[in-house]
Amino acid sequence: MKRSVSLSINGRAHSVDVEPRALLVQVLRDDLYLTGTHIGCDTSQCGACTVLLDGRATKSCTTLAVQAEGHEITTIEGLAQGGELHPMQNAFWEKHGLQCGFCTPGMILSCIDLLESNPDPSEAEIRHAIEGNLCRCTGYQNIVSAVQAAAVAMRGAPVRTTA
């Protein structure tokens, strides 16, 4: 049975009719056309579906849409503000932190969560923090560089996590 669920996404309220079994990622993609959030696995390993739930990196394929009601959701589409990229997006661009771009939205959001709790991470800490985001293209090296660059940029500016 479908039910109406209110979701707050990127600062906007949405009301969608969903089955309780609908995963948050399916509702984002198929019902709200927020297709920047991707699906790369079915066992909660790859992190392509990562969004921020109340500012914290969350696998939207391991979250039911009904569970997300009452929480603030940020997707990749909600990061850039007024045409200005989030420093993490900018750093991924600057440092060539992406190739095919499929893992990138989830990766960027996880990295934002990391800098929120650890504004100056070491390489080892960065690598540990993105264990839940698989990338098959970059070998991770330039992603690490991007996070380091973003950390420098973001320490100079107030950290912004929700749109």
Binding site: T75, I76, F92
Partner: peptide
């Protein structure tokens, strides 16, 4: 990159 880092890429799905 600009489309891919903002979620504006178009993949088949």
């Amino acid at each position: 990159d600009p489309r891919l880092i903002t979620g504006k890429g178009t993949f088949v799905d």
